[in-house]
Amino acid sequence: MIQFRNIRKTYERPDRARLEVLKDVDGRIEEGAFAAVVGPSGSGKSTLMNILGLLDQPDSGTYTLNGREVTDLDPTERARIRNQDIGFVFQQFHLLPRTSAVENVTLPLVYSDVPDPEDRAVAALARVGLSDRLHHHPHELSGGQQQRVAIARALVNNPRLILADEPTGNLDAEVTEEIMEIFLGLHRAGRTIMLITHDSDLAARCTERLRIEDGRLFEEATV
């Protein structure tokens, strides 16, 4: 499913010092895996996810997604892959303000051609248990509900890969469990999930764990 080799990424800080975020990273995630990415803050977890999600480009290295080399694709083709094959879930939810749940979930379908976008959005919201909140605006929803809307948005185009960056970082324990249940359900349904988390309990429940430390990636033994 995902295979990457020799990924390097360096940022230039405002003080001109160069910061090596990813130093020659290799790794692979199999189809259907539920992979946790753990590591201290600033270790490069989000940078790796952005590169794997085609939001960012590595300085060097190769990245194969679904058997296709995607490192050097043009921006339009990368946008199409993000739209069709990848679903993102962020820590800050990133819902559009003053916009209903259905419309938020419909957003990825604005950029693809499907016959009944609203019906699909309603179905996706049903899958995360929000059928009774279709027309609520984000400020009328709890944090857990907002994150569930965001998950529905990630699911609406039926992507094979879900990338979640600290999805429970802003949520309390009870809600975290609800969200984790949703991810586990998606995993059972066969979707490939990459979950960035600080929470070692959550990581322990994933099928594999990748640890990033000081820009290097280590695969931890499966329990």
């Binding site: 921006p75 946008a79 199409r80 990825p108 185009n157």
Partner: peptide, 16 residues
């Protein structure tokens, strides 16, 4: 800006 970033993340091209 976050909205624009999000739209790009869910597949909007620069042209869109």
């Amino acid at each position: 800006t976050p909205e624009i970033g999000l739209r790009k993340a869910v597949g909007a091209t620069e042209g869109q």
